[in-house]
Design a protein around this nucleic acid. Structure first.
Length: 359
DNA sequence: TCTGGGGTCCTAGGACCC
DNA sequence: TCTGGGGTCCTAGGACCC
């Protein structure tokens, strides 16, 4: 672990990243509502990846079914997802951030943490925004915090294209009265379970009994949520390259699969693709899972650990086929195959953060 | 209104072992 | 005569994030 303890954590988040990349190569769309998602056909099954600010003003948001987006924004421009274009833009952004003299931990296409020792983090934030804008013509917002949790949450207050600082000194003033779901790592389910315990706000979470939280959520998550109420979180920014734990391939079919033969063929194809991904990473596969979504919306996952770690794609394909034999004879609208791979060395579980794998 | 595709991590419970 | 206690591995399921 090459983590570096630093005075400040900055969270850099590109504004409407996917839509912004599309607008750069289609300047004539500036000012129009733009929705990127699926294959760009709003009559198909698919969801919104990113909506431009103009589309958001009409009520279109990430994760919304494309059909609904088309109803809310009938005059919007719908574009297909072009992952290679976003990866290329992202690589440029990250390379630019690495020129600033800070430790850079990449979180995804459009996000990174920066760790730095500096008396003036706002100045570093402005330098980062300027450098990214000059290099890529993309705007970003920056959150400044004394740990990752506060930096990440701060970014939301800086959007668009702004800078916001959130520290132990201002945590309760800024976040205390807000609902727990605004915390990074608390979603609808957990916020509901917290509400059932009488905990609705960040203040209430911070004051909650640790015993009650541990009883409800377990020893690790209970402690994590209580800390989250106080804005506590990891302070280490780690620039060691990300090592994927696994790969998966998922497809939602435009028409449901109705016969066992169709399902078998689809599982075999997905398994071949995912085995190729694993082979490209050069690490053996230790586990294979098959995910199925029966129509209308029941999801099941079954998995098996391989008898021995395998670098042979054929083992993945046959393991997936065996798992597929367990599927019920019902209409299938989604299939997925996932492989998990042996780690190069034992990752230290104590360094893991339950919020999200990749931090 | 009807829900993508790519990920990570946590928890519970059963099997099995000493 | 009903049966401890600790550990690990495995599977299934749940939750969250972008």
């Amino acid at each position: 672990m090459d983590g570096t303890r630093t005075d400040w954590v900055l969270h850099v988040d590109l504004d409407q990243f996917v839509a912004a990349v599309e607008l750069l190569r289609r300047p004539e769309l500036a000012g129009r509502p733009v929705v990127v998602g699926g294959r760009g056909d709003p009559t198909e099954r698919g969801v919104v990846s990113t909506a431009s600010y103009e589309a958001r003003a009409l009520g279109v948001g990430s994760g919304m079914p494309l059909r609904i987006a088309a109803r809310k924004a009938p005059d919007a421009v719908f574009l297909p997802v072009d992952a290679p274009a976003y990866e290329a833009a992202s690589a440029e952004v990250m390379a630019t951030l690495r020129t600033l003299g800070a430790v850079v931990e990449v979180l995804g296409w459009d996000e990174a943490f920066l760790g730095a020792r500096t008396p003036d983090p706002e100045s570093l934030a402005r330098r980062a925004q300027r450098a990214v804008l000059d290099a890529t013509a993309l705007h970003c917002s920056v959150g400044i915090g004394d740990n990752k949790v506060r930096a990440k949450i701060a970014t939301g207050f800086g959007k668009p294209a702004g800078v916001f600082r959130l520290t132990a000194q201002t945590w309760f003033e800024v976040m205390g009265d807000r609902p727990t779901i605004e915390l990074w790592g608390v979603g609808t389910k957990v916020s509901r379970r917290l509400a059932a315990l009488g905990i609705r706000t960040v203040d209430e979470l911070a004051a909650a009994s640790l015993e009650a939280l541990v009883a409800e959520f377990g020893p690790r998550m209970g402690v994590w949520y209580r800390d989250l109420g106080h804005g506590l979180g990891p302070t280490t920014v780690d620039d060691t390259p990300w090592v994927p734990r696994g790969h998966s391939r998922e497809t939602t079919y435009q028409q449901n699969l109705t016969t066992p033969e169709q399902v078998r063929a689809a599982v075999a194809e997905l398994a071949r693709e995912v085995a190729a991904d694993a082979a490209a990473d050069g690490r053996p596969v230790v586990r294979v899972a098959v995910k199925v979504r029966y129509a209308p919306f029941v999801t099941k996952v079954s998995s098996r650990t391989l008898p021995a770690p395998s670098s042979d794609g054929g083992d993945v394909v046959s393991a997936a086929a065996a798992l597929a034999e367990r599927l019920e004879d019902r209409e299938v609208r989604l299939l997925g195959v996932r492989v998990e791979m042996a780690m190069p060395d034992d990752a230290d579980p104590a360094d893991r953060t339950p919020v999200r794998g990749r931090i």
